[in-house]
Amino acid sequence: MGKIGIITGSTRDSRVNLNVAEWVKSIADKRTDAEYELVDIKDYNLPRFNESIPPIMSGGNYETPEAKPWSQKISEFDGFVFVSPEYNKSVSSGLKDAIDYLYVEWNHKAAGVVSYGSTLGVTVTNDLRLILSVPKVAVVGPSVNMSLFTDFQDMTKFNPAPHHEEVLNKMLDEVVAWSNALKTVRR
């Protein structure tokens, strides 16, 4: 059975991102096709990306002490669900740095995206597809895109529309299938 990391996409103190990630985890935990773990990037205290050698060339030898536990955690997973707010029509700087710190740990794994924003987080979903293509992450087709105006009360209290659960399960079906298939590539 594969292991899927549900990765938060915000480190702000006032974030609602953790609530959305916990909702994803609560639905994933009803499934029996993989083991799901919530991974809060805020817990890793990654500073702004400042490695002197790009991770694609470093062979996992990171200078930043915080990158080492981050590397170990991401290495445990076969696939991911990125839960991301849309900031200025893109990903948050915290999530971008968390992705940029590593390379081989992401290789040949699958991912899905759960996003939200004033325009359903569609831009962040598309940006993550492009960003994750470099470290060889296969982002599946279905995504969950939610509105700050209809899936949150006063843009702060998460209250997803019921139809999102069905879409999330379809996305998880794909993430698990692709994660299992890509195990053969990683071997």
Rank of each mutant, 00 (worst) to 15 (best):
M1W: 03
G2K: 08
I7S: 03
S10F: 06
R12I: 08
D13N: 12
R15A: 04
R15K: 05
L18W: 08
E22I: 13
K25S: 11
S26F: 03
K30F: 04
R31D: 03
D33Y: 06
A34C: 04
L38H: 02
V39C: 00
V39E: 01
I41Y: 02
K42E: 11
Y44C: 09
Y44V: 10
Y44F: 15
R48K: 00
F49G: 00
N50M: 10
N50Y: 02
P54G: 05
P55N: 11
I56T: 12
S58L: 15
G60D: 03
N61P: 02
Y62L: 14
T64M: 07
E66T: 07
E66C: 07
K68P: 03
K68F: 04
K68W: 04
K68D: 07
W70Q: 07
K73H: 02
E76L: 12
E76H: 08
D78S: 11
D78I: 08
G79Q: 05
F80I: 02
F82S: 00
V83P: 03
S84M: 05
S84N: 08
P85D: 10
P85K: 06
S92G: 14
D97P: 00
D97N: 13
D100W: 11
Y101S: 08
Y103A: 13
E105Q: 13
W106A: 12
N107T: 09
H108Y: 13
A110G: 04
A111N: 03
G112V: 14
G112P: 13
G112E: 12
L120Y: 01
V122M: 02
N126Y: 02
R129Q: 02
I131N: 01
P135N: 06
K136S: 11
A138N: 08
V139Y: 07
G141R: 15
P142M: 04
V144G: 13
N145T: 09
M146A: 00
D151F: 04
Q153A: 13
M155N: 10
T156G: 01
N159K: 15
P160F: 13
E165R: 10
E165V: 12
V167W: 05
D173R: 07
V175F: 07
N180W: 05
L182I: 13
K183A: 14
V185I: 15
